[in-house]
Design a binder for these strands. Structure first.
Length: 683
RNA sequence: GCGCCCGUAGCUCAGUUGGAUAGAGCGCCGGACUUCGAAUCCGUAGGCCGCAGGUUCGAGUCCUGCCGGGCGCGCCA
């Protein structure tokens, strides 16, 4: 791990600058640490001389030379060099660096300000999960792993909208379209893929509504019944939600995605969380009752038009007070554009989705003053999965809610609502809560035309959809790739590949490995794009196990592991034995005296994992992690081809190569784990 | 109409607190399995970074405008 080295170097540089140029405390600019384009120039570098050029009225090259001259010595740094162009570069002490990295396995964790809640998945419990949901879970779960890697305690929540229209629609499907009773539905659920069945039924209900919009009254009535409880529709709804959630959990478990708590919307209603939040919002004036106009009788929240994005812009323009910037708008004729309002409580007294979400967010941040009751939803090998409930909860349970930070993983279409959530927190007098609420937003997953065609979803040739660059998925229409179908296909392909390479494997072993490979393929695929880029899902592309893919990285690690297995078997050289003598082995292969810097390059690159993770958390951009892992695997594969290890005759060279491979293997294994990908024993 | 996002190689995309020569995968073409596993590696070709201005030592990255595409703006969730 490299971050501790960065910190030491930065601190030392600050001291040097203060001494050299008599900078006052805190005014010596903190040097950015970068990597020179190649190891001949240096291992680490900083452009600090460029920043100081104006202030000191000297050429960067001169400043760099002065700093290099005054640098003195720093543990772990071998040499300092002022590059002719003004960069200041550093060469690390290689032997000590690699031995240290191998000795201390874990990254030093930072103690943060408290617990983080990550909410992700949140699929409507009325149908099977599809490819779009997988993007959410893959991102959410990776966020969880990455935060934990940095030592942040994380509570993972999955929000279950068990009392919404989507569940109500399937209730209508069973009762009205199919005339089924709860017992009949239960029998059906026990004998079929229930989530698949509901997938089709939901699409049929949607069509049924479209044939005659008067039928929508059935939906309204059912929704009302489901929300209020104590009737057959509600019972059926509860049954459907419970069963579908269990299906989703199984699907997600295949992806190595797991949760700590399931929060049920029904409990938020029954426990009157909203009433509590409503009092706070009313008292603070964040919402008010409209007594005239089209929204008469509604409780509304004013929407601030230009809330955040440009407020903290450090351009010259920002010198003007925000009011002045806003002024020119008043000359526009449409007055109401400036004072838009969002309905929080409808005139019939029913709270909207936003209202429920506000209450939930308050609870997450420990600002509500109420708590759920809790029950065990499922037992797992690693402990219980908890769910909220409204009554009869367990006497003792882990503490939930009350987090210092909240990440809501929801697609970009919800940005507007998530912004309102922050506004509500601000208006209710919780600016720090607003500050610590993060909308982790990502773009949609659509289908390529080729894949849509393959699945029989091709849009009509003359339709608008046909002219678009992609085909939108729609759960409502039953149009999309079901998550389990995708996973099945991937694993079938992987199993074929595994079997062709390892014909001696028993079926169970083959399938176990195929599953790891399939998961690697999907999860990597869903992570490798920037979150703000739409994924146009193409089956053939996602099925690829070659090139930039999860299996590629797995393959590199499997090879590295094989080398060690053979080293142990043949030479009796295990990790401990290797490490024990590394301090005395001639290090020419590592230092470059043998003519190659390859091992060192690998080592330094492998050390960057903690730095990459930090960047990932800062930017919430996991493609950075994916690319890093891939390029490290790529570097290893190239090294593997060029430089023999087992068959290397020079003992010192063999040992240093093995040490580098060991470190790369460790770091790649960690990187894969952060992406929820396991390493197969063979593949 | 207003707001947000995207535009980089034939295709799909990296390049994220502005930094040294703009990279990768796929595809194309040509090479490497008697040698630690070829799900691999090596090499060739391929670029007005949408367009035009601006900011500065330095811009694919920041600002402004324009062009093209996507999404959002409901007493739905």
């Amino acid at each position: 791990m490299i971050l501790p080295v960065h910190e030491r170097l930065r601190a030392h540089l600050t001291r040097v600058l203060m001494q050299l140029y008599a900078f006052a405390e805190g005014t010596a600019s903190s040097a950015a640490i970068e990597y020179p384009p190649n190891r001949i120039l240096g291992d680490l570098g900083t452009p600090v001389a460029f920043e100081l050029a104006r202030r000191l009225k000297k050429a960067p090259r001169v400043i760099a030379q002065e700093i290099a001259g005054a640098f003195g010595t720093l543990e772990g740094v071998d040499r300092v060099a002022a590059a002719p162009n003004g960069y200041l570069n550093f060469f690390l002490e290689r032997r000590g660096f690699l031995i240290d990295r191998l000795r201390t396995a874990q990254a030093p964790t930072q103690s943060g300000p408290g617990k983080a809640i990550v909410e992700h998945t949140a699929i409507n419990p009325n149908k099977a999960a599809h490819i779009g949901h997988l993007r959410n879970s893959a991102l959410g779960d990776t966020l969880v792993r990455v935060l934990r890697f940095r030592g942040v305690p994380v509570e993972v929540q999955n929000y279950i909208d068990d009392t919404g229209v989507q569940v109500a629609d399937v209730v209508v499907g069973f009762r009205v379209l199919e005339g089924k009773t709860l017992d009949e539905i239960r029998t059906l659920a026990d004998s079929t893929r229930f989530d698949y069945y509901c997938w089709g039924l939901y699409a049929r209900v949607t069509e049924w509504y479209e044939e005659d919009t008067a039928r929508l009254s059935q939906r309204a009535q059912t929704l009302h019944d489901v929300e209020h409880g104590g009737n057959e529709a509600a019972e059926i709804g509860a049954f459907i939600a419970d069963r579908i959630v269990r299906c989703h959990l199984e699907t997600m478990a295949r992806m190595n995605v797991d949760y700590d708590l399931l929060t049920w919307e029904g409990d938020i209603l029954r426990l009157k969380f909203w009433a509590q939040a409503f009092d706070v919002l009313k008292a603070s004036g964040a919402v008010y009752l409209k007594d005239e106009g089209p929204l008469a009788g509604c409780w509304v929240m004013p929407i601030e038009e230009d809330a955040t994005p440009k407020a903290q812009r450090p351009t010259p323009r920002a010198q003007h007070p925000p009011e002045a910037a806003r002024e020119p708008r008043s000359d526009v004729e449409d007055e109401d554009a400036g004072e838009r309002e969002k309905v929080i409580v409808r005139s019939n007294g029913v709270v909207t989705y936003v209202g429920k979400d506000i209450a939930y967010q308050f609870w997450k941040l420990g600002l509500l003053g109420r708590d759920f009751e809790y029950r065990v939803f499922a037992e797992r090998p690693h402990g219980a999965l908890w769910a909220t409930c409204s009554s009869g909860g367990a006497a003792s349970h882990p503490p939930f809610g009350g987090a210092a930070y909240v990440y809501n993983v929801i697609d970009v279409r919800q940005s507007y609502l998530q912004k309102l959530l922050k506004q509500a927190l601000l208006a209710a007098g919780h600016p720090e809560g607003a500050e610590r609420s993060h909308h982790f937003s990502y773009e949609m997953v659509a289908l390529s035309h080729a894949t849509a065609r393959e699945l029989g979803f091709a849009p009509a040739p003359d339709s608008e959809e046909a002219k678009r660059p992609f085909v939108s998925v729609s759960g409502r229409k039953g149009l999309g790739v079901k998550a389990d179908d995708l996973l099945d296909t991937l694993m079938r392909n992987a199993a074929r590949e595994v079997a062709s390479r390892n014909p001696e494997f028993a079926d169970a072993e083959r399938d176990r490995i195929a599953q790891m490979i399939g998961v690697a393929a999907v999860r990597y695929f869903l992570i490798k794009f920037s979150t703000n880029k739409m994924i146009v899902f193409d089956l053939d592309e996602a099925l690829s196990f070659e090139g930039e893919s999860g299996p590629y990285i797995q393959y590199a690690v499997v090879r590295a592991n094989n080398i060690f297995q053979k080293l142990r078997q043949r030479d009796g050289l295990d990790e401990g034995a290797l490490l024990a003598r590394l301090g005395e082995v001639p290090a020419g292969e590592l230092t470059g005296e043998n003519g190659s810097h390859e091992i060192w390059e690998l080592t330094l690159e492998a050390a960057r994992l903690d730095e990459v993770v930090e960047q990932v958390i800062r930017s919430l951009e996991f493609s950075v992690l994916a690319k890093y892992a891939f390029s490290l695997a790529q570097a290893f594969n190239a090294f593997y081809h060029r430089s023999p290890i087992l068959n290397e005759e020079r003992d010192d060279v063999r040992r240093w190569r093995a040490a580098a491979v060991l470190y790369v293997r460790n770091q790649l294994t960690r990187a894969l784990d952060l992406m929820g990908i396991a390493v197969p024993p063979r593949m």
